[in-house]
Design a protein around this nucleic acid. Sequence first.
DNA 1: GTCTATAAACAGATAGAC
DNA 2: GTCTATCTGTTTATAGAC
Lengths: 236, 236
Amino acid sequence: MQDWSKRKQTGEGDADSTRMALIEAGLDRFGVKGYDAASTREIAAAAGANIASIAYHFGGKEGLRRACAEYVAGLIGSVARSVFGADFEKAESAAAALPAAEARTELVNGMMRLLRFLLLQPQAKLIVRFMLREIMSPSIALDIIYGGIFRPVHRRLCALWSAATGKQMESEEVRLAVFAMLGQAVYFRIAQEVVQRRMDWREVGEAEVESISRILIANLNDSLDRDARAAGGERK
Amino acid sequence: MQDWSKRKQTGEGDADSTRMALIEAGLDRFGVKGYDAASTREIAAAAGANIASIAYHFGGKEGLRRACAEYVAGLIGSVARSVFGADFEKAESAAAALPAAEARTELVNGMMRLLRFLLLQPQAKLIVRFMLREIMSPSIALDIIYGGIFRPVHRRLCALWSAATGKQMESEEVRLAVFAMLGQAVYFRIAQEVVQRRMDWREVGEAEVESISRILIANLNDSLDRDARAAGGERK
DNA sequence: GTCTATAAACAGATAGAC
DNA sequence: GTCTATCTGTTTATAGAC
């Protein structure tokens, strides 16, 4: 089992490092085995801490779960900021006013950054696993992440899509097209095990991401072209 | 908790119905809570059976897990047959010999049937949840399903893609394009909770599937057009 | 084939020494 | 703040009655 303690084995009295080690170990074990199945003994051992420290720092197992959820929510927020821009929450109107070519470039770049993050960053595995568990058995953490991060990001992408194609911003068609675009990227992370087997890839590195990226960007550009033609036709 | 017994409460001596009730209850509880977290007491209660019956019929909890995996594998197989044709295992060479227009029609129809199954059939929820758990913490069940069903289906789709576009059948590009196509459909099932919130859909019924289908089919046709143009250019 | 009773291992929580 | 020791409840597995 992985060691999340990241510190000397000689009894360290640092409260914050123990807290953090417990959260990271909890995130790992909860993610792999699920909340009920992961034992506090197992988590404490992975963190290099004592069993009683969970009760001391978080009040109990349930408190550690909440702390883990808050940590991931923060992580997802900072990732969204680095992938879709530092101000994605408020950039909707600005995005809608962009020239078509610039909006398209932003969409393509965002897509590439998202794919790179999903497939190359180790954190992504943690986040995706956490999100899948939340989707399979939803808790309040999902509400927080949806309203606070997913919805504003999706709205901004719709604004960009609208600016790039001339289609109406919040139309059903645009919202679904953005989902289809995101779905392709996310799927390659979720189904990575299966993709690797089928592609005979030993690992997914720069070269493999480049291959996937080429297809997804081409698909994105085709979709945008089609919608731009359709919107142009509507105007005539 | 749901009752999977489907039989009278008066002590029934039917071994097969007990077996089946235990498998269905196990599938449900393993799917919702995970293997370790679901207790045999809970499963036996949901099946309307005694705790000891799990040891008797399956040799223990692990045996029940294997029986559930085999049941789902069979279920996925029969679904794949109804969606992608009764003989998908052996139809690869036949698919490769189809005229381009017919191959394209088969791809489009398969995609629509897959989407309809994923979003409209209640079984799909069970299957997808089971597959996600297997992908998050893989067991031998994943090997069985990959080799027995997923790989042959994917190969047949690649053969159809090749016939529809003129691209080389087992090229990296074709295999990835097929993954991207499947990913869009599967994603709408996995992220259904999130999609419903964003679309303000109370449920996903015929009308909603039709909306999604329209986008995905258009994306598929665009991808095929692009690859057909590129393959035509290569030949000159 | 189904049931009750029970064994042996494990869980989370906590009191108290340091 | 960290540790050991222990309490209480729950887990899976199984022996044996019917």
